[in-house]
């Protein structure tokens, strides 16, 4: 089983976020980055699968500050191969650009299974998983919390709102958006991470051009503003729905 896990680093919310002078992006000088929580689960799921059914886990990550440490920690946890995408990632890229850039690299690895976090808090143009699946021509299922793999197929548990879970069979190769690994991400002792820094190698892949087309252009980024007033709509479902339709029509939205 050849498993590829695509991860990225996102702004760490432990520090306050500020908006830069352009008013369309975060102030990046002071940003502290952290592995996207869902990607961390995708990585754990990949390693769990490898431990259950043999195979190889390759971790792919765009080059941003601190990515080497994250990749070495992944190696200490059990990843076999580390690939860093070199390019203009530091200033942030949208999901379209990241998915396109990763697709070419992932394709070459000829994976049986591609795992990535189902979402990230900085996905302004949709999550990376479905876009990546599209560029790779593979099926995609998201919100997965539990995967088993067999011969050319995978059984995945997909979570629906309201506590519903569906088990579905997916033909491989496929891309899965991981919501939660079967076990929470494991702890690796620092001494093991330091060991990995000495023994593991990070392969570098140059991404010449980042194509972000398909995503939105950000007009303005701002902190939530307190609204002037809110209208509470009273009544049962029918009445509320009728009132909503009326309001939308008045506003010319319908």
């Amino acid at each position: 089983m050849n498993i590829v896990v695509l991860i990225k680093l996102v702004p760490d919310l432990v520090e306050e976020l500020t908006i830069d002078d352009s008013g369309t992006d975060l102030e990046r000088d002071w940003l502290r980055l952290i592995i996207n929580e869902f990607d961390d689960h995708a990585l754990e799921q990949g390693i769990l699968l490898k431990e259950q059914s043999e195979g190889q886990v390759t971790v792919v990550a765009p080059d941003t500050e601190g990515v080497d440490d994250v990749l070495y920690a992944a190696a200490a946890r059990g990843a076999d191969k580390l690939i860093k995408l070199l390019g203009e990632f530091e200033q942030g890229v949208n999901s379209h650009a990241l998915a396109r850039a990763s697709a070419s690299v992932v394709q070459e690895l000829q994976p049986d299974l591609v795992l990535t976090g189902v979402q990230a808090h900085n996905d302004l143009d949709g999550s990376v998983g479905p876009l990546l699946a599209e560029f790779l021509g593979m099926p995609y299922v998201g919100y997965i919390s539990g995967v088993t793999v067999g011969d050319k197929k995978s059984i995945a548990r997909k979570e629906y709102p309201g506590g519903l879970i569906a088990e579905m069979e997916i033909s491989l190769p496929a891309v899965l958006g991981i919501q939660a690994a079967e076990e929470p991400p494991r702890y690796v002792a620092i001494s093991k991470v330091r060991q990995a820094m000495k023994t593991a190698t990070i392969e570098e892949q140059e991404i010449i051009e980042l194509d972000s087309s398909g995503g939105p252009t950000i007009g303005r980024m701002f902190l939530p503003e307190a609204t002037e007033r809110a209208t509470m709509i009273e009544g049962d479902e029918e009445e509320v729905a009728a009132k909503l339709v009326e309001i939308f029509q008045e506003l010319g939205l319908l």
Partner: peptide, 18 residues
């Protein structure tokens, strides 16, 4: 700890420290 066998509560304190 080297065997990765630690209570979860402790794990987050160690990860935070790191």
């Amino acid at each position: 700890l080297l065997a990765g066998n630690i209570p979860k509560e402790l794990q987050s304190a160690l990860e935070n420290s790191q």
